[in-house]
Write a protein that binds this DNA or RNA. Structure first.
Lengths: 221, 221
DNA sequence: GGTAATTGTCAAAGTATTGTGAAAAAATTG
DNA sequence: CAATTTTTTCACAATACTTTGACAATTACC
């Protein structure tokens, strides 16, 4: 289930492309401005970036990404057949490009090439399991053990636990948790986080997660 | 430990990379020309190939290897702007690529992924059958037995079962299953996977395959 | 100690995902 | 090319999960 960030301000193209790609089985997040795009690009497996954006150049965004060593594949969409833009884009680190207008089918094919062949580097660098005292998270099996017995977590509980277990001792605000686990769209209320923390606490029968009143939560180190 | 052939003519990068990888526990052989590389590539477990070589194209070397049915993983090192080369390389059968400059750490991670893949498929190829509790897959005959009686599976069902049985306990997303069983061309909807899982479940009359809601499926270990 | 704000807890309502069978489409076979 | 088998899609049912909201418990602050 690959997550794609679509940066497109065209009010027709954006939503229709989103729908098309979702029908193809991808998870999409559509934003219209670079400001929104910059919030947390790391959590995506791929970025599709319109080159002609109102609040700045796509090129700068791409440059920033690469400067931060974020090597997610980026497919750029250029409106005209502007050779200079394409060359600049590729030199800056775009993985591929499409010139508008294009066939959605072709875009899908190119997306698959990128996703199949090049897993994002943070995925490679992350180990496939995580130990924290009595807690053991196996990412490959997607299983969680606590004190040697398996506990069943739902998807959200799992994501939440993993997010916090990766950085034990660090404080997370509810907003940060929502951003990183839920994403920018379907953004539930902050109380939802509480409910999931409760579930995890009940299932592990232990206070792995500490409450920081007025702040958020923290994983015991 | 794994033997790696490093084809790199850069007098700085070559030796330093060799040392770095040797410190990581790999056995390295560094050659600067394709002529040397071609001597006996078969004896290595992996090849790391610089794309920009003086005495010819890395692409040709790769093509030769694959023509001789030598399926050693090849990681190619390319410059950023060589989009065409990258795509050509992957289409010719490169396993992965790194764009220079890169983090040695990341290269190591990618090497491990490739070696792991080869190992599992190699192990599987060596033995012509596979046992998993009451399930027995005879890959030579292409027959499947469950609790000592034969069950008839169609091609897709067989491929799907074999993919998952090869790594019991591991979680597979529908996208990964589609990629590995169906490949890139004629890519059906993700629900197709569900249907085939259903068929297998009905034919084996057992929950060999667990559902991971929101994630995908997993073979019982 | 009293009060307001924050968090814990639970169950019901609302969503999303998956199971299932059958029909349509595609591929294979004779 | 017709018959058969397989694959894929679709619709709807079943199920599991998520979110909300109400109220209780706790904490912080005066």
């Amino acid at each position: 289930m690959s997550k794609i960030l679509l940066v497109e301000d065209d009010e027709n193209l954006g939503p229709s492309l989103k729908k098309y790609l979702e029908d193809e089985g991808f998870t999409l997040e559509l934003v219209a401005t670079l400001k929104l795009a910059k919030r947390d690009p790391k959590k995506f497996d791929m970025i599709i970036l319109d080159w002609m954006l109102p609040d700045g150049q796509g090129l700068d965004f791409l440059r920033e990404l690469r400067a931060q060593k974020i090597n997610i594949p980026v497919i750029m969409l250029t409106a005209r057949a502007d050779l200079v833009d394409r060359i600049l884009g590729l030199e800056t680190g775009a993985s591929d490009y499409m010139t508008k207008p294009f066939e959605p089918r072709e875009l899908v094919a190119r997306i698959r090439v990128q996703l199949r062949n090049v897993k994002s580097s943070h995925e490679f660098l992350e180990s496939d399991h995580l130990d924290l005292g009595a807690l053991h998270i196996d990412d490959l099996k997607r299983e969680v053990y606590f004190e040697d017995h398996k506990i069943e977590l739902t998807k959200m509980e799992y994501e939440l636990l993993r997010l916090m277990a990766r950085e034990p001792g660090r404080a997370f605000s509810r907003e940060e948790i929502l951003n990183k686990v839920w994403g920018m769209e379907n953004y539930p209320s902050t109380r939802t986080v509480d409910t999931h923390v409760l579930q995890i606490r009940q299932k592990t029968k232990d206070d792995l997660i500490e409450t920081l009143r007025g702040i958020g939560y923290r994983m015991k180190a």
